[in-house]
Design a protein around this nucleic acid. Structure first.
Lengths: 184, 184
DNA sequence: TCGCACATGTAACGTGTTACATGATTCA
DNA sequence: TGAATCATGTAACACGTTACATGTGCGA
């Protein structure tokens, strides 16, 4: 029915790396940068329940250890399809502007695609859109900096620096996914 | 009763720059980087209503132009106090990790404080915490990069680059707020 | 036996998103 | 007269936060 949230996609991505229980997932979320998408039980467990209800993951009770039975999740065929479709989505200007975190999340799981050309395209488009974004921010600075207090101007500067850093990163990352046949 | 959200603080900050209607605020939000905190009427108008209910802003009907009366907001004394208290809050490690956006929002409005020493302290602490954060990310990279797919490793790298860019920016910005008497 | 890590959930709450609704004023 | 802009809102909905609840197995 409805689309997973970023948290949902993060969880779906993690179970692609091997079957995991809710508790396992919580730990990974808490210990890595993925923690930005929350690691609290009040978010994780309902998110898993939603993924299961939508048929994107399959949960199996596991009593192998005599512990309280834990539920281990793995992606379903549909889950794999939805996930790779998400990974393969076009990179839009709006994404770069407002949802850069989601783009980075997608990139972090791009190995699931196992398609160097697709990742190359992703980074290429990301770099292009970041370039546009940086240019926009700079023209905003030019237009408005005279009328802004020093602090606001510097805050805008911070945005420019961060976006520029992302752009440099994307260009550097591109080198790792250059296609074998020189493709441009 | 309850604390304003980032959107609430953004609006409260904007009315410090001069009385503004909901529509004015929507325009500013839509046209600037503040747009990250939403510019949709379904967010702005309820947020303003909350600020008014909490006594942080005062809304006045304005019929000066014969238009449909528009409501113009300005901060109350309490609103100014709450706002400056927010601006003056300590910079914590958790903030840097998960709420860097809020820190930048606070900095962008720091001119309201009109206190160079306070802004200097803010940036100093921000730089310190960013340094800690970058170090943490780098040690995470060291510990885990061997077991991660190339893409995840690069995504972590992106986080490091962004945080480093913020750190460089904070150090540069510090120079603008050096206290007159050399204070360290 | 005491506390900690393991393990899974629920309930209330606030808020942002999307979509809808309404109406005045200005200009072509 | 019709469209664009000014101007303010409401309602349904989904989701994350916080806090709570419950119980197991293990090591000191």
């Amino acid at each position: 029915m409805s689309e997973p949230t970023n948290l949902g996609y993060a969880l779906l991505g993690l179970v692609h790396q091997g079957p995991k229980s809710g508790y396992d997932l919580r730990k990974v979320m808490a210990e890595t940068a993925l923690g930005n998408y929350s690691s609290s039980p009040g978010a994780i467990y309902p998110a898993l329940a939603r993924l299961e209800k939508e048929g994107l993951v399959i949960g199996k009770e596991d009593r192998s250890t005599s512990l309280r039975p834990k539920k281990v999740y793995r992606p379903s065929a549909k889950g794999r399809k939805v996930f790779t479709a998400w990974l393969s989505r076009e990179v839009t200007g709006d994404d770069v502007n407002r949802h850069l975190d989601e783009l980075m999340l997608r990139f972090a799981f791009h190995d699931v695609l196992d398609d160097r050309a697709a990742t190359h395209r992703f980074l290429k488009e990301l770099a292009r859109q970041l370039q546009v974004f940086v240019t926009e921010l700079k023209s905003q600075r030019q237009r408005m900096s005279a009328s802004m207090p020093l602090q606001s101007r510097l805050a805008l500067e911070a945005g420019i620096e961060q976006a520029s850093a992302s752009l440099r990163w994307a260009r550097k990352a591109l080198r790792y996914f250059r296609d074998e046949r020189a493709e441009e």
